[in-house]
Design a protein around this nucleic acid. Structure first.
Lengths: 174, 174
DNA sequence: TATTGTTATACTCTATAACTATA
DNA sequence: TATAGTTATAGAGTATAACAATA
């Protein structure tokens, strides 16, 4: 409802672009402009929304966001070292230290020291860790349920595969 | 090449899961485990990769990551207030202050004060801002070129539309 | 000399609350 | 009383470098 009006600025004279009356803008109300061409912008918005939902769902567990990520990777790759797991998880090896500290303190994971290479830790989940991982994974999957309901099975599978294909392509480009 | 071996832990006895020899694991080498079911995980990985590429491409400009985002939004919605623009940009109104400070300091944007409601700023890009925005947008688009080359036109359009559809669905779900 | 894990540091991003000036 | 912008602050996430133990 804001009418076209005058603006004062720090500069003495300014050319004032036309500002469309707010009621003319439908849908998203505000325009995306050049962002409309950016695939990365759309990925970013979806990621922001999804990670927000998961974070909310996990708040009662008091675990950092990366904790489930690490538990899943440890469970799927038992005995691997922290450095090896850091490669796949988009995480730095120093970040993993804190996460594993936390998991170990809660009895969810175990740091084993290799007898043949005593620099290396090797990570395992405890039975309790496996249980909590499955529980939190179900909760995370539940936050994605609207997508499985709202997209057709074909669309869902397509999105799933295209995301992976896109990642592979970008990763392969220098 | 790491053989199966013994581990010492802080616990006296530990059941040691089977660790597959490393050469048995192809492709990504490490297993995703339950993450393989998570659409959110794939979105996260793609987002991480793409934002990394854009950040690298922008490093010489010395502008924060949100600066191009704000310039595009200001350009597409001239005269709108900071609060209004914050709604669409996944940004807090306090975060916008710093970004606009920076843009104004560089002569890229102008804060106009509304004469009818003197609480409100209204934002415009300068000619220089418009020029830099277009330049940086081209660079950002160039980081996505591998996707336009590697995916078919159909796949690219599908991914584009499915990302938006997915966001709408998640946003609509409470 | 290189690697694993650790610690410390710093820098960004984000979220929050409090404050001001205006309405 | 509510809103727009600002400021300050604290928290999480990330990146870096340095270090000790080990290879």
């Amino acid at each position: 409802m804001r009418p076209l009006e005058e603006w004062t600025t720090t500069l003495s004279t300014v050319e004032l672009p036309e500002t469309p009356p707010r009621e003319d803008i439908k849908g998203e109300e505000l325009q995306l402009g050049l962002h409309g061409q950016r695939l990365g912008f759309r990925v970013r918005r979806l990621h922001h929304l999804l990670s927000q939902r998961v974070e909310e769902a996990f708040v009662s567990y008091g675990l950092r966001p990366g904790s489930l990520t690490m538990m899943v990777l440890i469970s799927a790759n038992p005995g691997y070292s922290q450095v090896e797991l850091s490669r796949i998880g988009n995480l730095d090896k120093s970040a993993i230290v804190m996460i594993v500290d936390e998991l170990e303190k809660r009895g969810l994971a175990i740091r084993g020291r290799s007898s043949s290479d005593r620099r290396r830790n090797s990570l395992f989940l405890t039975a309790q860790g496996e249980k909590l991982m499955k529980e939190m994974h179900e909760i995370a999957m539940a936050t994605e349920q609207p997508l499985r309901d709202g997209l057709s099975a074909e669309e869902y599978d397509q999105l799933f595969e295209l995301l992976e294909k896109a990642r592979t392509i970008v990763a392969a480009s220098t």
